[in-house]
Design a protein around this nucleic acid. Structure first.
Lengths: 210, 210, 210, 210
DNA sequence: CATGAATGAGACTTCATTCAT
DNA sequence: TATGAATGAAGTCTCATTCAT
């Protein structure tokens, strides 16, 4: 399982930006932290600003509104999460291996960044607008990717074919989400997600046996 | 699958209350509707009042605050949902049948009350305080109940015994929740959850075969 | 000094009213108590109702509004206080004796009813409207009565005549009020006002010596 | 008698603050005005804001609540009043002179600021909490200061020694307060308090003669 | 680019008052 | 007369957003 962190990958655009720039990234990192702690609505823009070490007004130089900050957070983090998972999937050949990899990669990222886990499982649902208007397409793409793997496994005989790839995808995503949620809300103890990943993988792979 | 509705069970306390009373119930019903539509934070107390056909101040005769209204909603609805599921479980003997029943009963209730599905999967996570302080114990009890069934199935040989009952419970709950969430956010088309219930049941029962 | 209480003098209007009636009086008595405790604005009409043992709405059968309740309280209690003092004054001949009597009678009443003292020194000033529109004439009449006594004393040589009767009256009233205020806000210990009355009387009589 | 004003002593902290700053002081000044006019409870925060020429929310940048605004007003103004009186007392040697000075200084300040007189005699009593929790210690200190002067005068033979310094202090404070109250509620005509001061001083000094 | 004081719209909540019973 | 549930106007306070420096 990976220990990789998705946050703060400073991609310094130019040498001149070295110290001054990346303020956008600092703000996003701060937002993950304070949103995870208090939730989206209970967090004031000034809280994010304080955590990021910038002035309130500075937030608005990088984000149009508090809502857009959350949306950006979502897009940025989900984007990286998906890219990371995609990348990891490439190494595997069989559908089984791919499905296992998805579970392990996603939970592995959460393990390394508990606050991201909380943001993904809880915070993103706190803005109804974000959930209904922006998050859905992103999630759908992810679900489709999983469904495609399942369908491929069915075609080559790895999985039984009387399961709907889409329901399997939703169930799997929900299971991962539920595991991460209880873990994030609970102790979030080190190593907990590792075992969980194995269990979930086994459960679903068994469940999909022909 | 049941078509039963959990809301609005007016238990008129006295004949005199027949028409006038149960204002508390009317407010809760209205809250489910408007919260499901706009989310907890975007909904104003006056919106709930209007939907319930009462004055703003009346809300505060029955609930201490907007937060407490959500908490009451949670306790009331989750309480009924659990009672309904418990009741339904009693009819089944084997662990397999019980697990299937849980899935079908819960999704069945959602099917009959899409707004309740939305409240349970989305709205309850919008109050960080509710989620962290009140909802967790309730969910934990539910997870424990599922885990107990799984453990029993393992003991009598229905299920393979190398799966952790608790991880199975979380996965199953997460899967149900995920299915319900995408259904609620999507079209929530009639009959959708019925098929889903069968699929999820099959997936998990297969997955738990010895 | 008198131990007489000005409150609750039930003047039963008719035999039939014996038990049922006098609700107005009960409400006024309750108002004195709760206003003294929490102040006029911090006291809710329902607090008065509860203290009087009546329903909220009943208050409005006897008083037009919360403001009018305070006004009635003022008129009723000040009326009785003045009548009581007037009555007591009649027994005295000299201006000196009358001045002493005023001090002793007023503080004596307060001693017997600490809550009335608080109402008169504090609560009545909490409704700006009452103070400016209704209380002033009442107080003015009282001040005039005192001033008249002083003037009479000056005319017959008891008092030096270079003191303005009106300033003396205001000073005396202010002194009594101040004594009562600190007493009411403090411990209001038994017997405290008795000594105070003697001291104040001596101070002012000395001060008015020719 | 002094014509000095205690309000609006802008202590500009930095050159840049010259015009913009001291908003806190502007708010306090505005509060004195509108509170004097309508009373504490009848005044809305937005009234104070309008009178101060700031936005409603700005009040809360300088004061935690409406109550705290009144408390600050009290502390600020009483603090200045006491300092002013203390300062003036230093110039006098005998107890008689000091007592006269107290009367003249205090009434002198009121004469120059009728609204302050109203705030001190009426408004401060409108918040029961302020009166009971915060104002009392302040007043007590003032009363003690007066009592100390009286005691000193008794020790050196200026005053008769059978008068309780504390009762004298309360009486004197009450007299001053009563004079100021009727003056503030009435016409508050120019020069009125000047004559009053002389009269009160004479009355009390006479009253304290051995 | 950055700041943070100021803004002001808008929400929650209280409570005096009413009125059907 | 008496009740007390219901009303809804109105006030305090918060906080996302702006803009002069």
């Amino acid at each position: 399982m990976s220990e990789s962190s998705l946050s703060s990958r400073k991609k310094r655009r130019s040498p001149r930006n070295l110290g001054a720039g990346d303020k956008r990234e600092r703000i996003l990192d701060a937002a993950v932290r304070v949103f995870a702690q208090s939730g989206f609505h209970a967090t004031r823009v000034s809280d994010v600003a304080k955590a990021a070490g910038v002035a309130d007004g500075t937030i608005y130089l990088y984000f149009e509104s508090k809502d857009e900050l959350l949306r950006s957070l979502f897009e940025d983090r989900v984007g990286r999460l998906l890219a990371f998972v995609q990348e990891g999937l490439a190494k595997h050949e069989t559908a089984k291996a791919k499905l296992s990899a998805i579970i392990e990669l996603q939970l592995g990222v959460y393990e390394g960044e508990p606050e991201l886990a909380e943001v993904m499982t809880v915070i993103l649902r706190q803005s109804t607008k974000l959930l209904k208007e922006h998050a859905r397409p992103g999630f759908m793409a992810y679900l489709d990717a999983i469904a495609t793997i399942v369908a491929a496994g069915q075609k080559n005989g790895e999985f039984r074919s009387d399961a709907s790839p889409h329901f399997v995808a939703r169930s799997l995503f929900g299971a991962i989400d539920g595991i991460a949620l209880t873990w994030a809300l609970g102790k979030a103890e080190r190593g907990g997600l590792s075992r969980a990943a194995t269990q979930v993988a086994e459960l679903f792979l068994h469940g999909l046996l022909p």
